[in-house]
Write a protein that binds this DNA or RNA. Structure first.
Lengths: 461, 461
DNA sequence: AAATTTGTCTATTTACATTTC
DNA sequence: GGAAATGTAAATAGACAAATT
């Protein structure tokens, strides 16, 4: 096909919109197909007898509408169909018979006894209250449960600082919307939790990567990124970082906290894996209490289906968080919050956490026996590991090859923030399969692949 | 205070950002206080030896940051502190002893029997599944419950079209984010559900009003607004519109649908009050099935605390909605969805809906006896009424005066979309007080106020 | 490795619409 | 009711930065 030209002489209104409209219409009509290259901005400017700036603006408008994407030096291209076939976003869709080491599921086999909890609840007098709207921040009793739960993570907070959310993903959405507006920039580890990217996209917030090492974010890189971009918000996971299992030492936490304080940043500290740490370091939020939103969830070490997380915030931000909860959910499902509160208070949560920690430890032990140990960072109880691939494996190719052998893993691409090039590594979940036998089978398949290397690539790629 | 001038010579980086930064810093330092007027754009441009356009851009950046607000013809002013003391956003915070006719609560006294449901559930074998993550769109059984529930509203859909959300507010957030991006414009009734404004703000979406009458949106006004603004999305509540109780006739629905089809708009049809209608008209979504997202909730006629709503979407949009659910919540609280599904299937929902309809009818009857009938639109079973105030009452003043007498109502300001001037009217909820006695007491207080008129205003306002 | 291509950013100029007085 | 004041919007021009070849 010859180079596409828009027809804008007939269109009313501003030129830049006309061009964006023309792109939109021709994409709908199939005249422009995903991947097609548009004329360069200078080209089109000359053709339409406009200046470069106007075409820039038109392309930007079309980009905002999700139609096209510009790449410096290469050109501007029509976007692929909106497809959200991110495997991380589709639990349970794997075909039967696959061993799923892709999802970070929380060891369902060790979940608490729901029947008992429901029987107990059904005898309560004040049950009707669970069918009415809750205050957005949760009532006093629930917030005290949050104080207790967060306390177990090593952070002391007051009930007034607690906001309850519908799980950690919701907590991230709420935290982002309290600290940013559409168009703002959030810094995060170069590899990051995909849910952050999803939430940011929902809110129109940009995500930019910060260099990291085996202990997470590099303070100097954070300092530089904050200065260069002017960003005011950082999201990070200092303990058992997803996907790399990087965990900040005390010294690293101090150094990051220093940058945060000096640059007056705000931190969203995601500590969903905090209770799996072997020797917990103090949360960042404890080092910069005025500058941190701290997220602790019940999903990983209690029960994923409850959808309850607690956010601890400096008092000045609580109201904004409550507003974001109201805007996104109005109120929380009281039944879930009640069950979570019960389990935290009556020792069930502690017992289940203990069981899940043991099982995670056993599975890590299993992984150490089956996989070449030099290829991943040793942790005692992480639910997953970050498997570094030997040459010439690349992440996506490995994930595809594993899938062909019946094992699902998560490629590095899923975690790359901004334009971070994906390293040759994959995340291997140990907590998703129901039993250790299935897990072992999956891990042995991966070990074989590492040993054999990739099959020869067809000549033309 | 003399006219504020920014100090930007010391600041690095682009001028327009320096100005915005200077505003931000001086607001933090208290040198600029809420309500203060900034120099006009032309003034400042001359003072800083820049052109008008640069200052425009600087003010726009500051406005994006929520610092200031420009008003054509008047000037640019520092925003009030972010205060979210919207009474509609704070259930249960009213001081004890107040009669709350402000919140649209769903007749808690008629709620279903949760204890029985929990006892039943606790005996189920498959209970453990309720603690694991659900597919984002809900499993097949839950989606069938959605089909059944939406069917009772007069709309036939397939299970594949259903997306389950954490209540109607969440459904609105999800629907908006599936259809818009930050910066887009959504049209709605000139008076609208405040939760729409809240959700739009969360997502960075603008809201623009469309003129309405006693049957809701005016088709001609919608046509004009769509053309003038280029907006592609309309949110509306065709049945028992909140706050006015306006309900579209069949003819109005046809006319609106015609505009929607011709202008290729997309409709978000909020039908949370659909089951309270006396003689239900067909949902708009049935008239333009390819162009509508239809929201039906369990909150109003079953139980508010469950936090379960169903969205029916054209198949092409289901995946986008599921993505938005994943981005905002990850998964739904299965326990709540399970209970809602049970109640829909076993007849509980129908019975409770019947009770709530009767009680609503009785309360409307009570209102007709106590309040001057000419002042509000008669509906058989709405949970609230829209009370038009006689001269010289104005909405906010009436609401404040009522509050002083111990009765909370919602002023028109809370519902005004965009810059719609608030009419002299208030929304009076009939469904919030626990008993009819309390309701009658509150209504009599309001009736007295209408009769007496406002107390003389102090000389200086 | 240098030159070129390509998109991005800031500031300017001019025209316009709304509100106030 | 018309003139003035004020903010808004679009198109232009030139400098800049990143990626390609």
């Amino acid at each position: 096909m010859t180079i596409w030209r828009p027809e804008i002489s007939e269109r009313p209104g501003p030129r830049y919109k006309s061009i964006a409209d023309a792109i939109g219409d021709d994409v709908s009509l199939g005249k422009l197909r995903p991947g097609d290259q548009l004329p360069t901005q200078r080209d089109l400017a000359e053709y339409l007898d406009l200046t470069l700036g106007t075409v820039t603006r038109a392309y930007k408008e079309a980009e905002r509408r999700g139609l096209i994407q510009g790449e410096v030096g290469r050109g501007t291209f029509v976007c692929a169909e909106r497809d959200h076939h991110d495997p991380l976003l589709e639990p349970g869709r794997e075909p039967a018979g696959m061993i799923d080491l892709g999802l970070n599921l929380p060891l369902y086999a060790e979940d608490p006894d729901l029947a008992g909890a429901l029987r107990g609840l059904s005898k309560r007098r004040d049950l009707a209250g669970l069918l009415s709207y809750q205050p957005f921040t949760g009532n006093e009793r629930y917030r005290r449960a949050g104080v207790e739960w967060i306390g177990r993570h090593g952070l002391a907070v007051e009930p007034e600082q607690i906001v309850i959310t519908g799980g950690a993903q919701h907590a991230i959405t709420v935290a982002l919307s309290a600290l940013c507006r559409a168009g703002d920039l959030v810094l995060t580890e170069a590899l990051t939790y995909p849910g952050l990217k999803t939430a940011a996209k929902l809110l129109g917030v940009e995500v930019a990567p910060v260099a990291m090492d085996g202990e997470g974010i590099l303070p100097a890189a954070l300092d530089r990124a904050a200065q260069e971009t002017g960003a005011r918000v950082v999201y990070c996971m200092p303990t058992l970082h997803n996907p790399t299992t990087a965990t900040m030492s005390r010294a690293r936490r101090d150094a990051v906290a220093e940058v945060v304080a000096r640059r007056q940043l705000q931190v969203i500290e995601d500590d969903v894996h905090g209770l799996l740490a072997a020797e917990p370091e103090p949360p960042l939020a404890g080092l910069v209490p005025e500058r941190a939103l701290y997220i602790a969830s019940t999903s990983k070490v209690l029960a994923g289906g409850l959808r309850v997380a607690f956010v601890a915030a400096p008092p000045a931000l609580v109201e904004r968080l409550a507003f974001a909860v109201a805007a996104s959910l109005w109120a929380l499902p009281a039944l879930s919050v009640e069950v979570a509160t019960l389990w935290i208070a009556d020792g069930t949560a502690a017992a289940v956490t203990g069981r899940k920690r043991s099982e995670a430890a056993a599975r890590q032990e299993l992984a150490r026996r089956v996989l070449p140990e030099a290829r991943f960072r040793r942790t005692e109880r992480s639910y997953f590991l970050w498997l570094e691939l030997p040459e010439p494996w690349r992440s996506d190719r490995f994930a595809r090859a594993a899938r062909d052998l019946g094992v699902v893993v998560s490629p590095a691409e899923a975690f790359a923030a901004g334009r971070t090039p994906p390293p040759p590594a994959v995340r291997v979940s140990l907590s998703s399969p129901a039993g250790r036998g299935e897990l072992e089978h999956g891990l042995r398949t991966l070990a074989g692949m590492l040993e054999r290397g990739p099959a020869p690539e067809p000549a033309i790629v």
